[in-house]
């Protein structure tokens, strides 16, 4: 993990009692471990964990566990994707095909599973996918790489950035109901907000 937090002693959950019940319940549940996946196989979850960790450049197990659980839930059942580009398969199909293609590419090129590949090689494959350059074409010609990368990124980012540990790392004071934010001039802080300890 590159970079360090400016707010090492800030824990957003220290303030959770000041939040409304509904928000408390939603946010604290993100720290609970998941028992079983509904859509993903164990193998798929393992590959996804490597991918998501690289996408956000963070290997904290708690945040990643929530990311994988969110992706699993979304692919198992969701009200919809909002939008899907013409010709792109539904998210569950897109991710499943994509993970399969990544695994096959890894086996084809290095004769080992993607999850066991050296980080630099995993990164290179992700970079190729993001640039629509992943090969061999026999494996990739039916997978829309740009759509795959975007979907993986979106699902990862929306859940990763919803985990309270990440909120603490970035100094996001977050939920503020019913108390609100009071001191909002430039440079002002409410007493319970994160204070800078490290200058980056």
């Amino acid at each position: 993990m590159s970079g360090i937090t400016r707010y090492p002693s800030f824990n957003v959950l220290d303030e959770k009692d000041a939040w409304d019940d509904h928000t408390q319940q939603i946010v604290t549940s993100r720290n609970q471990s998941i028992d079983k996946y509904q859509f993903l196989s164990e193998r798929e979850a393992e590959i996804l964990r490597s991918i998501c960790s690289l996408l956000v450049d963070d290997s904290s197990p708690d945040a990643l566990a929530f990311v994988i659980s969110h992706i699993d839930k979304t692919l198992y059942s969701s009200p919809g994707e909002g939008q899907r580009k013409v010709g792109v398969p539904a998210a569950s199909e897109l991710i499943r095909q994509g993970l399969k293609a990544m695994e096959q590419s890894s086996q084809h090129m290095y004769s080992i599973s993607f999850a066991e590949l050296e980080t630099v090689k995993q990164k290179n494959m992700l970079k190729d996918i993001s640039e629509v350059k992943a090969e061999p074409s026999a494996i990739w010609n039916r997978v829309p790489q740009k759509a795959l990368f975007e979907k993986l990124m979106r699902l990862t980012v929306e859940s990763y950035c919803s985990h309270p540990q990440v909120w603490s790392d970035i100094g996001y004071a977050g939920p503020a109901y019913p108390r609100g934010y009071v001191r909002t001039q430039l440079g002002q802080l409410d007493p319970w907000e994160a204070k800078t300890e490290n200058e980056a």
Binding site: P79, Q83, R84, K85, V86, S162, P175
Partner: peptide
């Protein structure tokens, strides 16, 4: 009861049903 100070859970305020875009 149904709102929360949270972006992810409140995505549901949007029309999530899939539209095909082109």
């Amino acid at each position: 009861k149904d709102f929360a100070s949270d972006e992810l859970s409140m995505k549901s305020l949007g029309w999530q049903d899939t539209r095909i875009v082109d």
